[in-house]
Design a protein around this nucleic acid. Structure first.
Length: 270
DNA sequence: AAAACTACCTGAGTGC
DNA sequence: TGCACTCAGGTAGTTT
């Protein structure tokens, strides 16, 4: 679930309910995440959430005394919910707020993290070496051109490298390459600036489109689920092995690239 | 230095 | 029904 559009819609979804609220209680039911949940967060009662923001796939909750970095990993989710709602398996961290609502972190695979930093989050080791945001003006064809130089890597692996550009996960890497008509296995260094320009535009477009769709499900983010199948309808290649290309009817192919399933149209993508 | 591989973890799905 | 196996949206850390 959590690719960049989901992280962004989670931020937008929780922000109005948590911004300006004071924390009442924090319960860590399971601290074993990718890294142990920072013990400091259990001391956050009476602290006020000043803002909610996002850097790459990290959600940043800013307090006067520091910042809580939240990553959803592969299976995490963050909901604003009535504290009386039944606890589900894998509801690991519960944060109650002064408005009577509760922020609940749920993550079956525990690949996510909740880390406290009292310094600027942008200096945090997990964040400071990250590349530009894909939707910012700092991400351009030149970004990719420079990153590709002297590398043997494929274009798909390049755009999924967080040091090059953040937030492009497996699904959207496949989708953007399809929209740009570029074969995922093509050597990044051999692609013209013109085609890289098309690709950067398609990455921005597909992410923006998904965020917009996330926006439509934003209103009912309090519900148990609801977004699950929604993006899926819009996907042109991801998880469509053997199905007809929406553009030319050729069966979509699947290959493995960097241990990740990669879907593409062998006719439309060169 | 860069590329390839491993590891973390649970749950859903498949085939026998 | 149950067991064994594969695969999944991420990414840091280790090895080649």
């Amino acid at each position: 679930m959590p690719e960049l559009p989901e992280v962004e819609t989670t931020c937008q979804g929780i922000a109005p309910h948590v911004t300006g609220q004071t924390i009442q209680t924090v319960i860590v039911r399971e601290a074993r995440m990718r890294w142990p949940v920072s013990p400091e967060i259990e001391d956050l009662s009476k602290e006020t959430i000043l803002s909610v923001s996002r850097r790459a796939k990290y959600i940043l909750l800013t307090f006067e005394s520091g910042t809580l970095l939240i990553h959803l990993g592969m299976s995490g989710s963050l909901r604003v919910i009535d504290p009386a709602a039944d606890l589900r398996k894998h509801d690991h961290v519960l944060i109650t707020l002064s408005n009577g609502l509760e922020l609940r972190y749920h993550d079956p695979r525990r690949f996510g993290c909740l880390l406290w930093t009292s310094e600027s989050p942008h200096l945090h080791p997990l964040i400071q070496h990250l590349g530009p945001e894909p939707l910012s003006e700092d991400f351009t064809a030149e970004t990719l051109k420079t990153a590709a130089q002297k590398k043997k890597t494929t274009i798909k692996q390049l755009i999924m490298d967080g040091k090059v550009v953040v937030g492009v996960g497996n699904i959207y890497a496949c989708e953007a390459l399809f929209q740009a008509g570029i074969h995922p296995k093509r050597k990044a260094a051999a692609i013209s600036l013109t085609r890289l320009d098309t690709l950067t535009n398609e990455i921005k477009a597909v992410l923006a489109r998904s965020i917009k769709q996330g926006g439509t499900t934003l209103r009912d983010f309090l519900r148990e689920d609801g977004t699950a199948g929604y993006f899926k309808q819009q996907l042109a290649v991801y998880d469509r092995e053997g199905e007809a290309c929406l553009s030319c009817d050729t069966p979509i192919k699947r290959v493995v690239l960097g241990q990740r399933s990669t879907f593409f149209c062998p006719k439309c993508q060169k």
